[in-house]
Design a protein around this nucleic acid. Structure first.
Lengths: 175, 175
DNA sequence: CTTGGCATGTAAACTGTTACATGATTCT
DNA sequence: AGAATCATGTAACAGTTTACATGCCAAG
């Protein structure tokens, strides 16, 4: 039930449309709290019904109306209240690790190939994280200040990817 | 839909009852593919209907019958076939990182407290992983051989926990 | 005498994924 | 001419979580 609060946090940082929020999710919160656009649009409607956000509807010809969401006082209050709660445990679902677990039944060649694929994926993710980090480096100071904690989560992501790559190499040498 | 294959992999390593499998999930596959006992029991029935496992029913007085599952040839075949497929991307859901992302709205004292809690959790998880690893160290060689790849996943878990702890300390110093 | 382990399930509620649906404008 | 971007949704299905349900035996 926390996509709700993820959206509050995002709208708090900067107002935006569902589409816009979705793009930002893909480059930030989505790394540890994935969501689809269908979920986002639905949740935004509920956030409005709860009185936590305001919507400004802008008519557009040909396109659907732009619905720009901003955070209300009640939303800030809810966000703060949620932040005092303890977090439940993280959940990871990794189909690749599942396969590694059963890899004694795998052809060595297949394993090597899949490991290589994972190495590429994690190299790409690491570069992505680093490029987002660098872009923030050259942002105005007030933006840097606002995204200070977002950036900490990014750093953890970088550590994870480095751990992945280390592991992929070690396993590659053995297999 | 991969709990199915997780179970095939587990039964492949060693036959067992749903209860037994569930305990093993909590100490291995569950770290990257969580499941509840309700899911496990249901899936085992389906595995049987698909002809991938055999069941030996042992009557017990007072307790429900023990249903011991073993892997059939068809199950091994399915497992091998699944192992040739590429894995879809991993999914992480971490409510704590969600809160860190929004932490500019958090009381510094609350953040410090929650960080401390996370540090304790990850220290505990790290010890757990290490103790499982050590127990395997002193197992007979044929067991070690069978759990070779399972152990690799454990090592990745250890790297992750180390990354977590490093990050918690860094953030603790700043916040 | 109460806690924990053994052992299996059903059912409802909630969440998340996938497929379908539309259509203008801008870039290559 | 075709792909990508902007912009929003509905509906069916699959998967997960939570609550409920039972009951013996052993250890402390």
């Amino acid at each position: 039930m926390s996509l709700r609060h993820a959206l509050l946090a995002l709208v708090d940082l900067e107002p935006g449309t569902g589409y816009d929020l979705m793009n930002r999710i893909e480059k930030s919160i989505g790394f540890f709290w994935p969501a689809t656009h269908q979920q986002v649009y639905k949740e935004l409607h509920q956030l409005q019904e709860l009185g936590w956000v305001d919507v400004r509807v802008e008519n557009q010809s040909g396109k659907p109306d732009r619905r720009v969401y901003t955070l209300r006082e009640a939303g800030i209050h809810e966000l703060k209240s949620w932040l005092t709660h303890d977090s439940s445990a993280a959940k990871i679902r990794d189909p690749f690790l599942l396969r590694v677990f059963a890899a004694h039944r795998m052809e060595p060649e297949t394993l090597r190939q899949q490991l290589n694929h994972q190495k590429n994926l994690h190299t790409a993710t690491l570069s992505l994280y680093q490029s987002i980090d660098e872009r923030l480096d050259s942002a105005p100071e007030y933006v840097q200040e606002r995204y200070r904690f977002a950036r900490h989560t990014l750093r953890l992501g970088i550590y994870f990817e480095q751990a992945w790559l280390r592991w992929c190499e070690e396993l590659g040498e053995l297999a």
